[in-house]
């Protein structure tokens, strides 16, 4: 293997190595917390993009699954004494099953039903969390016992767990992108009827994609609840969990592998900085406004995101979203 080829092959592992070693050098909770939150958003965004980017179906229900994960993690801990670090992956699988059921309802038809169902799903789960008081303690929320770790180390397991979730999300997304399944999802985005006419079971593909895509939000929700040692309907159903990944995927570039990563690592630190700058009484509200404005601007002026814009600029062509091959101009018809 030549040096250049080795570089090509191994460079993705360099940032990962840096992220793994960072906590050795950086001890400030603020930065580690920021990084952990960024990992979380990056994983959720990669998941969202499997449905929103590859298949082109926008879900507005991300936080519904996140909240479901939060409560599931808390309840399994409080009722059955199962640590969240153990239960989280299983909770993710459970959420995928819920996602498949939801997909079965919404995805046999076209996009409008999917938007409506995912949007109301969040309200349904939130309503359940609020009203099933015997189980969830209603709006008072559930307190979870602290991990028994020294104060300065308490963040680390969450840091590495979220990083692992992110790495897993990356490899899942990459495997899908290169597979026949992923090609089918992109076919659905481009010409759904045509894909169906070529034998692709579009409903099955979409349901499967949605089931996979919600896994990450769910696991993240479970971990986050334990990190905060607390869950209530406001925290578990925080609008930012739905909003931020959408903004991140759009800014970075939908339907690409790097786009959601880039978007998360760009938007989340900037968001935190903005919140830091604003007076705390209106910080949350203006943060919403800022993300809303960015979303509108991206939708209007750069709907393909940074990665795709860069690629098509470099290819000089009109190709969009997730091109790997460059496209030379067509030859004249023979």
């Amino acid at each position: 293997m030549t040096g250049a080829a080795a570089l090509q092959r191994w460079w993705p592992w360099v940032p990962l190595l840096v992220l793994v070693l960072l906590p050795v050098g950086i001890r400030e909770t603020f930065y580690l917390d920021l990084l952990m939150t960024t990992f979380m958003y990056a994983a959720i965004t990669l998941g969202w993009d499997i449905m929103g980017g590859y298949a082109g179906y926008v879900s507005l229900g991300t936080v519904g699954f996140y909240g479901l994960g939060s409560y599931a993690g808390a309840l399994l801990l409080l009722r059955f004494n199962i640590p969240v670090f153990v239960s989280a992956p299983f909770i993710g699988v459970l959420c995928s099953l819920v996602g498949a059921g939801l997909g079965w309802i919404a995805l046999r038809t076209r996009a409008a039903a999917f938007v409506i169902v995912t949007l109301t799903f969040t309200s349904i789960v939130q309503l359940l969390a609020l009203n099933l008081k015997g189980l969830t303690n209603g709006s008072s929320g559930l307190y979870m016992p602290l991990l028994t770790l020294p104060n300065n180390l308490i963040l680390l397991p969450f840091y590495y767990y979220m990083l692992a979730l992110l790495v897993f999300a990356y490899f899942v997304s990459r495997a899908i992108r290169g597979s026949k399944f992923g090609l089918g999802l992109i076919a659905i985005r481009e010409e759904e009827e045509k894909a169906e006419g070529l034998g692709v079971d579009t409903s099955l593909y979409k349901i499967l994609a949605f089931a996979i895509s919600v896994f990450f939000a769910c696991v993240a929700g479970a971990l986050r609840a334990q990190y905060l040692n607390y869950v209530d309907p406001d925290i578990a159903f925080d609008l930012f969990i739905t909003l931020s990944p959408i903004v991140m995927a759009l800014v970075g570039g939908r339907g690409t592998l790097i786009g959601p990563l880039l978007g998360a690592f760009l938007v989340q630190p900037l968001s935190q900085y903005l919140v830091f700058l604003l007076p705390s009484s209106v910080a949350g509200q203006l943060h919403l406004v800022a993300l809303g404005v960015v979303l509108l601007l991206v939708v209007l002026f750069m709907p393909d995101g940074i990665v795709n814009a860069y690629r098509s600029a470099r290819a000089g062509g009109s190709g969009w979203r997730g091109r790997r091959q460059t496209a030379p101009p067509a030859e004249a018809a023979p």
């Binding site: 899908i176 090609l183 894909a195 034998g199 079971d201």
Partner: peptide, 26 residues
């Protein structure tokens, strides 16, 4: 599928599908 390569256009069609073929490299 205008955004795909010619070869990818040829790979989308499915003769039959099992979960195994679905997750094979395209």
């Amino acid at each position: 599928f205008r955004g795909m390569s010619v070869l990818e256009n040829m790979i989308v069609p499915l003769r039959q599908q099992t979960l195994k073929t679905l997750f094979r490299p395209a």
